[in-house]
Amino acid sequence: MSAKDVVVKDRRNPLKVARGLGSSQSGVGHWWTQRLTAVALVLLGVWFVVTVLCLLHADYATARATVAKPWNALLLIAFVLTMFWHAVLGLQVVIEDYVHVRWKEVVLLVAIKFLAVLGALASVLAVLRIALTP
Protein backbone atom coordinates (compact mmCIF):
# COMPACT_ATOMS: atom_id res chain seq x y z
CA MET A 1 0.00 0.00 0.00
CA SER A 2 1.54 3.28 -1.05
CA ALA A 3 1.26 6.53 0.94
CA LYS A 4 -1.03 7.95 -1.74
CA ASP A 5 -3.75 5.38 -1.05
CA VAL A 6 -3.82 6.21 2.64
CA VAL A 7 -4.38 9.94 2.01
CA VAL A 8 -7.50 9.39 -0.09
CA LYS A 9 -10.17 8.80 2.54
CA ASP A 10 -13.13 10.54 0.99
CA ARG A 11 -14.30 8.54 -2.01
CA ARG A 12 -17.37 10.63 -2.68
CA ASN A 13 -17.70 12.37 -6.02
CA PRO A 14 -16.46 16.02 -5.67
CA LEU A 15 -19.87 17.23 -6.89
CA LYS A 16 -21.55 15.41 -4.01
CA VAL A 17 -19.35 17.35 -1.56
CA ALA A 18 -19.93 20.70 -3.28
CA ARG A 19 -23.73 20.48 -3.48
CA GLY A 20 -25.49 22.40 -0.77
CA LEU A 21 -22.56 24.77 -0.29
CA GLY A 22 -22.01 28.28 -1.55
CA SER A 23 -24.59 30.00 -3.70
CA SER A 24 -26.71 26.88 -4.06
CA GLN A 25 -28.40 27.63 -0.74
CA SER A 26 -30.15 30.93 -0.14
CA GLY A 27 -28.07 33.34 -2.24
CA VAL A 28 -30.90 34.19 -4.61
CA GLY A 29 -33.27 34.82 -1.70
CA HIS A 30 -30.74 37.22 -0.15
CA TRP A 31 -30.19 39.00 -3.47
CA TRP A 32 -33.90 39.33 -4.18
CA THR A 33 -34.81 40.55 -0.68
CA GLN A 34 -32.05 43.16 -0.87
CA ARG A 35 -33.54 44.50 -4.13
CA LEU A 36 -37.09 44.33 -2.80
CA THR A 37 -36.21 46.32 0.33
CA ALA A 38 -34.19 48.71 -1.88
CA VAL A 39 -37.23 49.52 -4.02
CA ALA A 40 -39.33 49.99 -0.88
CA LEU A 41 -36.67 52.26 0.62
CA VAL A 42 -36.56 54.48 -2.47
CA LEU A 43 -40.21 55.33 -1.79
CA LEU A 44 -40.14 55.24 2.02
CA GLY A 45 -36.78 57.05 2.18
CA VAL A 46 -37.97 59.96 0.08
CA TRP A 47 -41.16 60.12 2.19
CA PHE A 48 -39.05 60.10 5.38
CA VAL A 49 -36.75 62.91 4.21
CA VAL A 50 -39.72 65.07 3.16
CA THR A 51 -41.50 64.39 6.48
CA VAL A 52 -38.40 65.31 8.51
CA LEU A 53 -37.90 68.49 6.45
CA CYS A 54 -41.51 69.48 7.13
CA LEU A 55 -40.81 69.13 10.88
CA LEU A 56 -37.69 71.32 10.69
CA HIS A 57 -38.78 74.09 13.03
CA ALA A 58 -41.67 72.24 14.62
CA ASP A 59 -42.10 72.25 18.39
CA TYR A 60 -42.55 69.11 20.44
CA ALA A 61 -46.35 68.98 20.23
CA THR A 62 -46.38 69.38 16.44
CA ALA A 63 -43.69 66.73 15.94
CA ARG A 64 -45.52 64.29 18.19
CA ALA A 65 -48.89 64.97 16.54
CA THR A 66 -47.35 64.43 13.10
CA VAL A 67 -45.85 61.06 14.06
CA ALA A 68 -49.12 60.08 15.76
CA LYS A 69 -51.16 60.48 12.55
CA PRO A 70 -52.18 56.94 11.46
CA TRP A 71 -50.64 57.12 7.99
CA ASN A 72 -47.40 58.61 9.27
CA ALA A 73 -47.12 56.05 12.08
CA LEU A 74 -47.74 53.22 9.62
CA LEU A 75 -45.20 54.47 7.06
CA LEU A 76 -42.66 55.25 9.79
CA ILE A 77 -42.85 51.69 11.12
CA ALA A 78 -42.61 50.34 7.56
CA PHE A 79 -39.60 52.60 6.93
CA VAL A 80 -37.76 51.56 10.10
CA LEU A 81 -38.35 47.81 9.59
CA THR A 82 -37.29 47.95 5.93
CA MET A 83 -34.27 50.10 6.79
CA PHE A 84 -32.92 47.65 9.37
CA TRP A 85 -33.66 44.66 7.15
CA HIS A 86 -31.82 46.23 4.20
CA ALA A 87 -28.96 47.32 6.48
CA VAL A 88 -28.44 43.78 7.80
CA LEU A 89 -28.45 42.31 4.28
CA GLY A 90 -25.91 44.89 3.11
CA LEU A 91 -23.63 44.69 6.15
CA GLN A 92 -23.71 40.91 5.92
CA VAL A 93 -22.25 41.00 2.40
CA VAL A 94 -19.57 43.52 3.43
CA ILE A 95 -18.55 41.39 6.43
CA GLU A 96 -18.49 38.19 4.38
CA ASP A 97 -16.32 39.90 1.76
CA TYR A 98 -13.75 41.61 3.95
CA VAL A 99 -13.53 39.82 7.32
CA HIS A 100 -11.23 36.92 6.63
CA VAL A 101 -10.96 35.49 10.16
CA ARG A 102 -13.80 33.03 10.66
CA TRP A 103 -14.63 33.69 14.33
CA LYS A 104 -14.58 37.47 13.87
CA GLU A 105 -16.83 37.08 10.83
CA VAL A 106 -19.38 34.99 12.74
CA VAL A 107 -19.33 37.30 15.78
CA LEU A 108 -19.93 40.35 13.58
CA LEU A 109 -22.70 38.63 11.59
CA VAL A 110 -24.52 37.72 14.80
CA ALA A 111 -23.90 41.14 16.38
CA ILE A 112 -25.40 43.13 13.48
CA LYS A 113 -28.51 40.94 13.54
CA PHE A 114 -28.99 41.37 17.29
CA LEU A 115 -28.46 45.15 17.01
CA ALA A 116 -30.82 45.48 14.05
CA VAL A 117 -33.61 43.55 15.80
CA LEU A 118 -33.16 45.64 18.96
CA GLY A 119 -33.14 48.87 16.93
CA ALA A 120 -36.23 47.87 14.97
CA LEU A 121 -38.16 46.81 18.10
CA ALA A 122 -37.19 49.99 19.97
CA SER A 123 -38.32 52.16 17.05
CA VAL A 124 -41.62 50.34 16.64
CA LEU A 125 -42.34 50.58 20.38
CA ALA A 126 -41.52 54.30 20.33
CA VAL A 127 -43.83 54.97 17.37
CA LEU A 128 -46.63 52.90 18.94
CA ARG A 129 -46.20 54.75 22.24
CA ILE A 130 -46.49 58.08 20.43
CA ALA A 131 -49.40 56.95 18.26
CA LEU A 132 -51.44 55.22 20.97
CA THR A 133 -51.03 57.56 23.96
CA PRO A 134 -53.26 60.61 23.70
Binding site: V80, F84, G119, S123, A126
Partner: peptide, 18 residues
Protein backbone atom coordinates in the same frame (compact mmCIF):
# COMPACT_ATOMS: atom_id res chain seq x y z
CA UNK B 1 -22.10 51.28 6.29
CA UNK B 2 -22.40 54.94 7.32
CA UNK B 3 -26.18 54.79 6.90
CA UNK B 4 -26.40 51.60 8.95
CA UNK B 5 -24.74 53.53 11.79
CA UNK B 6 -27.00 56.51 11.04
CA UNK B 7 -30.07 54.30 11.47
CA UNK B 8 -29.30 54.43 15.20
CA UNK B 9 -29.91 58.21 15.01
CA UNK B 10 -33.44 57.54 13.73
CA UNK B 11 -34.02 55.19 16.68
CA UNK B 12 -32.63 57.82 19.08
CA UNK B 13 -34.90 60.50 17.63
CA UNK B 14 -38.01 58.33 17.96
CA UNK B 15 -37.13 57.25 21.51
CA UNK B 16 -36.53 60.87 22.58
CA UNK B 17 -39.78 61.97 20.94
CA UNK B 18 -41.64 59.21 22.79
Amino acid sequence: IALAVGSLLVVCGLLHLA
